[in-house]
Design a protein around this nucleic acid. Sequence first.
RNA 1: GCCCUUGUAGCUCAGUGGAUAGAGCGACCGCCUCCUAAGCGGUAGGUCACAGGUUCGAUUCCUGUCUUGGGCGCCA
Length: 581
Amino acid sequence: MSSQPLEIKTHLADLLRAALASVAPGTTAEIQLERPRDASHGDFASNLAMQLARALKENPRKIAERLVHELPRSPWLLKAEVAGAGFINFTVAPAAKTAVVAAVLAKGDDYGRGAQKPGKLQVEFVSANPTGPLHVGHGRGAAYGASLASLLAFAGHEVCREYYVNDAGRQMDILAVSTWLRYLDSFGEKIPFPPNAYQGDYVRDMAQQVRDAHGDRYLHPAAAVLACVPPADGEGADIEAHLDGLIAAAKDLLGEEWHYIHQHALSEQLADCRADLEEYGVHFDCWFSERSLYDTGMVAKAVAELEKRGHLYMQDGAKWFRSTAFGDEKDRVVQRENGLYTYFASDIAYHWNKFERGFTRIVDIWGADHHGYIPRVKGALKALDLDAEALDVALVQFVSLFRGTEKVSMSTRAGSYVTLRELRQEVGNDACRFFYLLRKQDQSLDFDLDLAKSQSNDNPVYYVQYAHARVCSVLAQWGGDATTLATTDLAPLASERELALAAKLAAFPEMIEGAARDHAPHSVAFWLRDLAAEFHAWYNAERLLVDDAAQKQARLALAVAVRQVIRNGLRLLGVSAPDAM
RNA sequence: GCCCUUGUAGCUCAGUGGAUAGAGCGACCGCCUCCUAAGCGGUAGGUCACAGGUUCGAUUCCUGUCUUGGGCGCCA
C-alpha cells in the first residue's frame, strides 16, 4: 500500500502531466479531472485532449489516444481509455477507492477540513433592527449566514461572525416612542396610536415592564405630548411627520429619562433576538454597535475623509457623496439638511472600520431589497482607497410564508407576522435550518407551514438523519468498539455499491471546497441527501452484520465512515445527527 | 422607464462550456420470517422560455424578445 492512497486524483493528474510533457513538450494546460456521473465512464474523466485540440490543431480523439499511450504505468490505475469526443476515462483499482474509509476514520471530525488559508474573513449577517421579534425572513438569513460561516471556517478560513446592531437610527426611536405611548395608554392618557409605530404586543409588554419598575415616573398628560405635534390626519397630514413630532415631544418632555425608555426597549429586544438565535444554533463572535461609530467619532471621521478627498459637495443644504464617480447611478446624501448623518454615512464608517480591524475578506449578507445599495457602499470604499473587491455581498431573497395555499401577509410595523420562534416551535430547529438551505439563497423561497408540519416525516432532513441513526443502530447490535475499525482490512469491500459509496466519501473534501468557494451551503445539503440515498440503497441491498468476520468488519468500517461524513456535513448546517430516531 | 433577478419533468427545485440533463414530491407497479419500511427497487413523465451569436462542443457564456419577482427616499 502506498502511503498516499487518498491522493488518487492528484496521482492521476501527475500521470496526465507526464503524458502531456511527452506528447506535446512545452505545452501547458490545466489538468481537469471530474468524476463522471455515469459509471460506465470510469471513475475519473479528463477533457485534456479536447482542451488541446485547438492549440495542437489536431483531432481531440487522436490527441487522447497519444496521451493514453504515453501515460506512465501505475499500480493504482487499472484502465485508461479514450471515449466520446475525446475524453480520457480512468478506472482505478478498488484499493484506491476504499482507502478513503481508513482516512475518514483516522481524521474523524476533521475529515474534509481544508488546509489553513491566509487572511481574516468576516461574515456579517442577520443584523436585523432590534425593534421586535425576528421573523421568518431573518431565519433564512441566519440559517444561510451561520452555515456559510461554518463552511468557510471548515474550508480553512479564519472566520469572524458578526451582527451589526442598528441601535442609532430612527427605527429605534420609533420603538422607544411606541413603548412610551403604550405606557401612557396604560395610565389612561388618550393618544391615538400611530399606524406607523410598532404595533406588536411585545411593545405593550415592555410598557408594562417600565410601569412595574418605575410607576408613573414617565407619565405626562396627553395634551402636553400632543401640544406641538403635527396632526396625524386631516388636510395635508403627514403620518411620518406626526410620528417624528411624537418622538421630539418625548425627548423634550422626558429629557434624560428618554434614554431609559430607549435603552430598555433596545436591550429587551436585543436580548430576545440573541436568545432566539442561540436556541436556533446561530452564534456570533461580535455584536457591533452602530451607535459606537457615532460615539467614537468614526462617522464624522469617515465623512471628513471623503470631504478631504474631494468626493463631497453641498446641495439643497445637504452634504452629498459623488457616488456616480464610482459607478453608482445617482449621488447620495451622507448628511441631511437637519445636520443628521444618514444611515449610509454610518455604513461607510462601518465598512471602513471592518478594514481597519484587519479583515481581508468581508462577506455581507443582506436582504435582497438592499441590492441597489451595493454600488454606493463599494463606491465609498473605492473613494477611501479601500479594496472594494474584498467585499462580497450575498443577497438573501424573500421568504413567503404560506399556510396551505394561502399566503400569510406580513408586516413588521403592524406586528402581524410569524416569528422565527413560532416557526422553530412548529417545524423544529433541524427541519427549519435544513429546509431553508434546500433553496439557493438568492432565489425567493415559498415556505409552506402546513406542508413543513404535515410532511415533517418526509422532510429530507429526517432522511439524512435516519441514515446516521441507522449506522448507530447497527453498531449497537454489533456491540463492538467502533474505534477498532480504523485499521480494518478493506479488501472485502468489492461490490459496485460499496466502491461507489467509498468514492462518494472521497469526494467530500472537494464538495466542501467548492461549496465554500461558491458561498453555497445549500450544495452541502443536497450532497448529504445524495450520500444518504446511496447509503440507504446499500443498506437495503446488503446485510452489514454477516457471519464472515472480515466482510462484516469491512462493511462496518464503511458504515462508520458514512456516519462520520454525514455528521461532519450536518454539523456545518447546524443540524443535529441523532443516534436514534 | 432604468437596474437587478427568474424561466429546466404534473408540482417544488438542483445542476453543468462536454458524453444519454438529475433529485424530492405526486402518479403507477412491487419489496418487511431479515441490522429501524422515517427505508428500498421499478415504470411513466423534458424542444433546459424563444430566436440569433461565440465555440471542436451551449441547457450553461453573449445579444435580443417574451416572462417571474424585487429595487429605484435627505428611510433603515
